[in-house]
């Protein structure tokens, strides 16, 4: 019984080690990259296309639309970062249906890594959009007094991102493990289904929060609601 897949270590050499988190992350990366490569190898630009291409198009355009709805002006620029966040977290929780699998997002190290990425990406996108002075000026708004609070908020929301995802993913695995010892039949399946739902919701929350932070840093405005939506 262990809290985190970090504790399962396959190989170690001093500071370097290969634990289950890294191994399963690599697995997910291979699945995502190979799957994409296989499907996009023969893309069709016509009206007839394969169902796998359709699925990928739905996912990509869906993410794109979500980013646009939050208010980012050029969603395709942020699609790589935000889309990868969502896909990685979603795939990590989706694979919990495979027996013996440990979701890498159930490790606080992974969620911290993702939160750090967001923590770094937000100011980068902000500076790129409105310049260094413009971005740093936001910390002094509405008054200079607000500067420490702004910095605290920046740090705390990064911590919250990491712990929220970790807590949810770890709890799902933990509950499953505990239930398996109490009621080995049927009930764990229901909890596993619930875990899938939670994982998807967490993936959505994580990526949408990252989007919102970036939107706040880039002073994005919500697009005018279209009449046909």
């Amino acid at each position: 019984m262990h809290l985190s897949p970090d504790e399962i270590i396959y190989w170690q050499h001093g500071f370097f080690k290969l634990n289950a988190t890294i191994a399963y992350t690599w697995g997910l990366m291979v699945v995502l990259a190979l799957g994409s490569k296989l499907v996009t190898r023969k893309l069709s630009t016509g009206l007839q296309r394969s169902r796998w291409q359709n699925l990928l198009e739905i996912i990509v355009t869906g993410i794109n639309q979500q980013i646009a709805e939050v208010g980012l002006r050029r969603p395709q620029k942020y699609l790589g970062f935000l889309g990868s966040l969502f896909l990685f977290v979603a795939m990590a929780s989706l694979f919990t249906i495979v027996p013996g699998y440990e979701p890498p997002t159930g490790s606080l190290s992974t969620t911290a890594a993702l939160a750090i990425c967001v923590f770094v990406a937000v100011p980068l996108f902000g500076i790129e959009d409105q310049g260094l002075g413009g971005y740093l000026g936001d910390y002094l708004k509405p008054t200079v007094i607000m500067l420490p609070f702004n910095i605290i908020s920046e740090l705390s929301r990064t911590l919250a991102l990491a712990v929220r995802l970790f807590g949810n993913m770890m709890s799902g695995t933990m509950i499953l493990a505990i239930l398996l010892t109490i009621t080995p039949f049927i009930f764990p399946i229901a909890m596993s289904a619930l875990g899938l739902l939670t994982g998807m919701v967490q993936a959505y929350i994580f990526s949408i929060l990252a989007t919102v932070y970036i939107a706040a840093a880039t002073h994005a405005r919500k697009p005018e609601p279209r009449l046909d939506d």
Binding site: L3, S4, D6, F15, F16, K17, N19, T21, I22, T25, W26, L28, M29, L32, A33, S36, K37, T40, L56, V60, G80, F81, G83, S84, L87, F88, P104, S107, L108, S109, T110, A112, A113, L114, I116, C117, F166
Partner: peptide
């Protein structure tokens, strides 16, 4: 709970994943 080597590795992994998905997806 936080293993700093894993954190660094996961950051690198994630950046590679971003590049891969950009490239292939």
């Amino acid at each position: 709970l936080i293993d700093w080597f894993t954190v660094i590795a996961q950051v690198i992994n994630f950046l590679i994943l971003v590049w891969l998905l950009k490239r292939f997806l």
